[in-house]
């Protein structure tokens, strides 16, 4: 049996459980973190800290592994320079995050908790994905993948 779908599903379940345990499925709590001038709720910082620990260990273990346990190679992002797209995209994402209190993980987890409330956000998010896909195709039709900018070029 191919173990990949099982590993991916298990990781998704664990991730979704973590979002619920930490309260990050609640947009009000996330907005509380972003509201530094108001009644600031630092919970999100503890979530990030908690998530960082296993991953710091995982990167150490990964450095001593030739191949992943259940796949034939590591697909890590190639190291690219810091680009205008990176910063512009992150800023737009941050504005959307601040308007809604939602980022992609919690929004998808909320499908199980408040499906009707999260639906407008999810449809708009998918439209945003689609818009970017169309834009990438239009600006660079020959290359469906993001251009591989050489560092220093």
């Amino acid at each position: 049996m191919n173990p990949k779908p099982v590993v991916a599903l298990a990781a998704g379940v664990l991730f979704g459980a973590g979002l619920a345990v930490s309260g990050m499925v609640d947009p009000a709590r996330v907005l509380g973190f972003l509201d530094i001038a108001g009644r600031w709720d630092p919970t999100l910082a503890f979530v990030m800290g908690g998530a960082m620990l296993p991953m710091m260990v995982a990167w150490r273990i990964r450095a001593n592994m030739m191949v992943p346990v259940a796949a034939d190679r590591f697909h890590e992002p190639v190291t690219l320079p810091i680009t205008i797209s990176l910063i512009a995209g992150a800023l737009l994402f941050g504005i959307g995050w601040g308007l809604s209190g939602l980022c992609p993980g919690p929004a998808l987890a909320d499908v199980a908790l408040v499906p009707a409330s999260v639906l407008p956000f999810l449809i708009a998010m998918l439209a945003g994905f689609g818009l970017h896909r169309i834009m990438t195709r239009l600006t660079d039709p020959a290359r469906p993948n993001p251009p591989q900018t050489r560092p220093g070029a």
Binding site: A11, L14, T43, F46, G49, P54, I61, R62, P68, A71
Partner: peptide, 27 residues
């Protein structure tokens, strides 16, 4: 006032474990 540092940290650990599973399991 509304902070849940312990639950947040515990949930964060689960999220980190899930991410570690994706990295070490599926690359």
């Amino acid at each position: 006032q509304t902070a849940m540092p312990l639950a947040g940290f515990a949930g964060g650990l689960l999220i980190g474990l899930a991410a570690a599973m994706m990295l070490l399991g599926l690359g």
